[in-house]
Design a protein around this nucleic acid. Structure first.
Length: 272
DNA sequence: CTGAAGACCTGCCTGC
DNA sequence: TGCAGGCAGGTCTTCA
């Protein structure tokens, strides 16, 4: 569900509520998410040192055990911080009771999410991280990088920018939105796009993600912040989910195609 | 190696 | 109203 801006929004929402808090108890209602959850009992008594993000993974750093609780939200995963006495909602699979009377709840209707308790040292070499490309908002994601990734590739540019080995964090929504802003047709072979246009795409990806984070992420169906408030970037979509509606720029009808099994939205007049 | 397709799982919306 | 079908923001595995 969440792409990079949503995960980052969740991270910034959780950080002040969790850092410095001691974990007083863990309850696992249902451990069979995408993968079986690890035994979380060893976390009891440990203290949250930090809440970080790499790609779409949330990283809960623990003070005592020198371990990191790595959590991927899949498509429908949500974290909420609620009073301990609040009853478990639908699809709540895990709860962490904190030492301040609050609790961190994990909900996930489709159970595509997954988590692991990994050693802090060597984290980057874990299978989940070792093949990840650069963060899109970092300096290592730049013109030269995207150009190098695209050279000789016949795959559609949309598939390339959604490939986490090329650049992380760009999911189905922001792929469509970035390509619209850059004026590039999503089905165009990546290797057949000029360097100038790829440089512009790099810029547009950074711009869109930055704007989405500033807006607090997008709310499609079930994304909400740690405090339950919705994100507002969905109000800014130019093409995503707008099949049959008019392009805001030229008035042409927005189309939907399927690429790699996923819906892609684009304007046939603005993008080529 | 590359690229495409299927799989995982549940809920919701549409249309008959 | 009831039900089948299609769709959903991510990743991993399999196959050509």
């Amino acid at each position: 569900m969440p792409e990079l801006p949503e995960v980052e929004t969740i991270r910034t929402g959780l950080e002040p509520l969790l850092v410095g808090r001691k974990i007083a108890g863990v309850t696992c209602h249902r451990p069979d998410l995408r993968y079986l959850l690890p035994d979380l009992d060893p976390l009891v008594g440990d203290t949250v040192n930090g809440v970080r993000r790499r790609s779409k993974y949330l990283l809960f750093e623990l003070a005592d055990s020198k371990q990191v609780l790595v959590w991927h939200l899949g498509m429908t995963g949500q974290f909420h911080v609620l009073p301990c006495q609040t009853k478990a909602g639908a699809h709540e699979h895990v709860r962490f009771d904190l030492d301040d009377g609050q609790s961190l709840r994990y909900r996930d209707a489709r159970r595509f999410g997954y988590a692991g308790l990994l050693p802090t040292t060597g984290l980057q070499m874990h299978a989940w991280f070792k093949n990840l490309g650069p963060e899109p908002l970092s300096d290592t994601f730049n013109d030269e990088h995207l150009l190098a990734i695209c050279i000789g590739r016949k795959a559609p540019i949309k598939n390339i920018i959604m490939d986490a080995a090329a650049v992380v964090g760009i999911g189905n929504i922001y792929a469509s939105e970035s390509l619209f802003r850059a004026g590039i047709h999503p089905a165009r072979a990546a290797g057949r796009i000029s360097a100038t246009r790829l440089y512009n795409l790099t810029f547009c990806i950074k711009q869109i993600l930055t704007e989405a984070i500033a807006a607090g992420g997008s709310t499609i169906s079930d994304f909400v912040h740690a405090d339950g408030k919705p994100g507002y970037f969905a109000h800014s979509f130019q093409v995503y989910g707008r099949t049959g509606e008019n392009c805001f720029l030229c008035g042409e009808t927005i189309r939907r195609i399927t690429q790699a099994g996923r819906s892609t939205f684009y304007c046939p007049a603005c993008q080529h």
